[in-house]
């Protein structure tokens, strides 16, 4: 590993130093099991996969039903009439209780800014902590890691008061800036940069006269892509699904997140004798709100190295 010196040298694909060779860097680990064992393992996987997928399936099936059919037919299969399109039209139509399109757009904005911002900040910090020696490095790293143990509820009231002082309650930055803070991402980026960006490569680039910004952008960043994708996904998912923070700092209906908006509709479903039946519409809205996350995860999962990143915690 120490022989890598050329700036354009082959990229070591991640913190592999502890991983033995084998296909994807993942060792085969069935210990030469018999055909029967393999079948049993597959059946167990299949059963749990059913348990995992059934609730998601139920959401999709239910969003294609009329309210009457929702109440009276088998929940896990389709029934006539198939009204997915008209339900979706209902979801996206403007109504007194708020515009779903607005909530979806808000959430997309918060989650993309939070996701991109969080990824950039933790890539910079992780690379900085892993590859530069500066005074107080370890203390400052502990400082970030320590915040992992501080739940948002612990500082919800002061955050609200500080926001009030600086007129940040019910503003977009007030909602998305906290989404950019992710100690776990800094930790993962530090571990990954430490294993995949060789010091020799950085030194060689410096000798060639490259500036630090250029080294970070052109040499370090491409080597950290799997970790960047992983961290980006974790940040987007946690921002998209965040409930407590918007709940505390935002009460402007225009800035509602999906989780807040769904709550409004959800409460409508619980009002007995309300004129409109929101149940199926709420489910269709829930389906739309998980769809982007599922799509992103499935599209990006070939870059996803969650297991490998976390595995580097061993030892």
């Amino acid at each position: 590993m120490s022989t890598v010196a050329a700036p354009a040298g082959p990229a070591p694909a991640g913190p592999k130093r502890r991983l033995p060779a084998g296909g994807d860097g993942v060792p085969l680990r069935l210990y030469g099991a018999s055909r029967r064992t393999v079948n049993l393992v597959t059946i167990a996987c299949g059963l749990f996969a059913v348990f995992t997928l059934v609730p998601i399936w139920w959401i999709f099936v239910s969003s294609t039903k009329t309210v009457n059919n929702f109440n009276s037919t088998f929940g896990f299969w389709f029934s006539r009439p198939f009204v997915l399109w008209s339900n979706l039209k209902e979801v996206f139509s403007n109504r007194e209780s708020g515009s779903f399109l607005q909530w979806l757009a808000n959430t997309a904005i918060y989650a993309s800014i939070g996701g991109v911002g969080g990824t950039v900040l933790s890539a910079m910090a992780g690379y900085g902590f892993a590859r530069f020696n500066f005074r107080g490095r370890n203390v400052l790293f502990l400082f970030i890691m320590g915040s992992l143990l501080i739940p948002i509820v612990a500082f919800a009231v002061p955050l609200y008061l500080v926001y009030a002082k600086f007129h940040m309650n019910s503003t977009m930055p007030g909602i998305f800036i906290p989404f950019m803070i992710s100690p776990v991402s800094v930790y993962l980026m530090r571990v990954y940069a430490g294993g995949s960006v060789p010091r020799e490569l950085i030194d060689a680039a410096r000798i060639d006269g490259a500036g630090e910004a250029r080294i970070f952008l052109r040499i370090a960043t491409p080597l950290m892509v799997p970790a960047l994708v992983t961290v980006f996904m974790l940040n987007v998912v946690s921002a998209w699904n965040n409930y407590f923070l918007p709940f505390i700092v935002n009460n402007s209906a225009k800035l509602y997140t999906l989780t807040q908006g769904l709550q409004v509709w959800f409460w409508h479903t619980n009002i007995p004798g309300s004129t409109e039946n929101f149940t199926v519409i709420t489910i269709a809205a829930g389906m739309i709100s998980i769809l982007p996350l599922l799509t992103m995860f499935i599209v990006l999962q070939r870059y996803w190295r969650g297991g490998l990143l976390l595995g580097s915690l061993t030892g």
Binding site: A125, I144, P183
Partner: peptide, 20 residues
């Protein structure tokens, strides 16, 4: 190194540790 880590540290300090 200090420049690279500063933005994350500033955010953690402002939005987590100070409120704490």
């Amino acid at each position: 190194g200090a420049w690279l880590t500063a933005p994350a540290l500033v955010l953690v300090a402002t939005f987590v540790l100070f409120p704490l």
